[in-house]
């Protein structure tokens, strides 16, 4: 069950999107989010939908990866859709007791639902086509200008890298401890909510203790190799913009302009 965690999962590939500079991809996703909320009619929304499908096809990522990601947030999407549908005031179409569906509600529900789905799909495109390391490199690089105002860009990026690196390790360790406690007769699967929460203590205490210990050891190991962040550090793979990044940038600006344009149709 723990193996299903796909946060920050990267799928090696060779598509155009895999080759783009991570900074370009991060900025593109940001602009995409803005465009997604700028459009306010079905023309705009339809255009964004087509654009998203094209991007997904370019990435050559098997579709089941998106479905898996969507399955994880299905509950949130359904809740949003339901809330929008029933809570928006306006012209009533259907009524049953205190539940009323309005024309505006349906429109809102379609908008919010589509927006959420597209948002999740495209952000997962970002993580699926970018290795965690280059992703954090990109974030660090983009945050650099803010360092002047005291933003610890390098440290933040380092923390993210370490956190991502240790997710699989912690998952593996959780499984080991669960087995060991199960061998002593612990039961993680039955009982009511309170009993289940209590059953987690033998799992969580060792897990946290080990995580702290590991953090200590890692800090010591980094110290021993004279690690100090930021200044004058060079990289094995220096980030460099190419022609395809410029083209992507221009296309993104067109997308934003287009999004504003659809408001006037």
């Amino acid at each position: 069950m723990l193996k299903d965690i796909t946060i920050g999962q990267y799928l090696p590939g060779n598509s155009l999107l895999h080759k783009l500079d991570p900074r370009t991809k991060i900025l593109a996703v940001l602009l995409y989010m803005i465009a997604l909320f700028v459009v306010n009619n079905f023309w705009g929304l339809g255009a964004m939908l087509i654009l998203s499908i094209v991007v997904i096809l370019i990435s050559k990522i098997p579709l089941r990866f998106f479905f898996r990601g969507i399955k994880a947030i299905a509950f949130i999407v359904l809740l949003t859709v339901a809330l929008q549908m029933f809570m928006t005031p306006g012209e009533a179409l259907w009524q049953w007791g205190f539940l009323t569906i309005t024309k505006e509600g349906i429109r809102q529900a379609i908008f919010m639902g589509t927006r959420l789905l597209l948002l999740v799909s495209l952000t997962s495109i970002l993580t699926l086509t970018t290795t965690p390391i280059s992703l954090t490199d990109g974030i660090e690089n983009l945050l650099k200008p803010f360092q002047r105002f005291g933003m610890p860009a390098h440290e933040l990026a380092m923390m993210m890298t370490i956190a991502l690196r240790f997710i699989p390790t912690l998952v593996e360790e959780t499984e080991k401890i669960m087995q060991a406690q199960a061998a002593r007769g612990a039961d993680f699967e039955s009982g009511n909510l309170v009993e289940r929460a209590k059953a987690m203590i033998p799992l969580l205490v060792p897990l946290f203790l080990n995580a702290f210990k590991r953090a200590d050891e890692l800090a010591m190991a980094m110290e021993a190799r004279c690690y100090h962040g930021g200044e004058n550090r060079t990289r094995l793979k220096a980030l460099k913009y190419g022609v395809r990044d410029v083209v992507t940038g221009v296309l993104c600006l067109c997308m934003i302009a287009g999004a504003f344009f659809t408001r006037f149709i």
């Binding site: 080991k176 060792p206 203790l209």
Partner: peptide
């Protein structure tokens, strides 16, 4: 599980109780 007791590698990483007595009692209590 009572019949076949398994001691995993580095079993000390599974200790979690406040006292030695309570930790050893975890199995029998279950």
């Amino acid at each position: 599980r009572m019949k076949v007791g398994i001691v995993f590698q580095y079993p000390e990483y599974q200790l979690f109780e406040e006292t030695v007595e309570q930790d050893i009692a975890f199995g029998p209590r279950n």
